[in-house]
């Protein structure tokens, strides 16, 4: 029974990891850019929600809604004024710039909020639970998992059903030819990063509601997100959800055996998949 319980907890936790990963996956898919500050941007988002909650006296969900356009603008500007300038054949400059950004964000947060851990409060929702047969499932983990599915559905609608999404895919395939269609690849990149930041604020909301956070936890979130993307296979958001679930299940089951093995078990699951299926479980057909 404990095993079944950890399995379900792990699957639900996978939803959170998929939310961490969706933005990373979107940006990588379109511009082959790995944003090493992705985890720190999620933590930054959690602090932003915290700030809005106390400033405007909102509940956390409303605060995330208010933060979303701000995050879009932030992502758009980050891409337009910084990352677009270093994107190119050489992978080194964007990696080093986002690594620098990661260090800057962590320390700005540390300077403004101190190292004390914080939490977002979702009121009674946090403790509410639902009995499914013999298993008690928390409403909050369930809500996170459903949100992850909704986010992936919406992103896939945008990518596969809109003119913007066509431009995303065309730019990802071949930016020069896309520009011959009147697509401005750099604008597409800016919009994509803006969109990724909206996913980041959703991830930030649930990160803060589900557990404590402090300025130093960003890199670990980046690593979980990265593992989920690689396990799933580049370019597939459903694969990313599957990857998140695998990490989540490995962590909760590892923790039932020995609490110290929680994080390590997730990483080992990642290595095993990388060993057996280096292109991930649901890779894109072409590339």
């Amino acid at each position: 029974m404990i095993f079944l319980d950890s399995l379900i907890q792990g699957i639900l936790l996978g939803g959170l990891y998929a939310l961490f990963a969706a933005g990373l996956s979107l940006v990588f898919g379109i511009m082959r850019l790995v944003n090493l500050a992705h985890g720190d941007l999620i933590v930054f988002g959690a602090y932003l929600i915290l700030l809005l909650v106390s400033l405007l006296n909102l509940n956390v969900f409303a605060a995330a809604l208010v933060a979303a356009p701000f995050m879009f603008a932030l992502g758009w500007m980050l891409q337009k004024f910084v990352l677009n300038r270093v994107l190119g054949d050489d992978i080194l400059p964007p990696l080093l710039v986002t690594f620098g950004l990661s260090i800057v964000i962590q320390n700005v947060l540390l300077e403004t909020w101190s190292a004390d851990s914080k939490r977002l409060s979702a009121g009674t929702l946090e403790t509410a639970s639902l009995a499914i047969g013999p298993i008690n499932v928390g409403i909050m983990p369930l809500l996170i998992f459903v949100s992850a599915i909704v986010v992936i559905l919406v992103l896939n609608q945008i990518i596969y059903r809109t003119s913007l999404g066509r431009a995303f895919r065309a730019t990802s395939d071949d930016p020069v030819t896309a520009s011959l269609m009147g697509v401005k690849p750099k604008n597409i990149f800016s919009v994509a990063t803006g969109l990724a930041m909206i996913v980041v604020i959703i991830a930030a909301l649930y990160l803060g509601v589900r557990s404590n956070f402090d300025p130093s936890i960003g890199p670990a979130r980046l690593i979980y997100a990265f593992e989920a993307v690689i396990i799933g296979g580049l370019g597939s958001l459903w694969g990313t959800l599957l990857g998140g679930i695998i990490i989540g299940v490995a962590q909760t089951i590892g923790a039932t055996i020995n609490p110290e093995w929680q994080i390590l078990s997730g990483h080992i699951a990642f290595l095993l998949v990388l060993l057996v299926r280096p292109r991930g479980l649901l890779p894109r057909a072409f590339d």
């Binding site: 910084v82 270093v86 620098g100």
Partner: peptide, 13 residues
């Protein structure tokens, strides 16, 4: 650390 990070970014740019 903030200044190191910023200097690093500025140099790369």
């Amino acid at each position: 650390l903030i200044s190191l990070g910023l200097i690093g970014i500025i140099v790369m740019l």
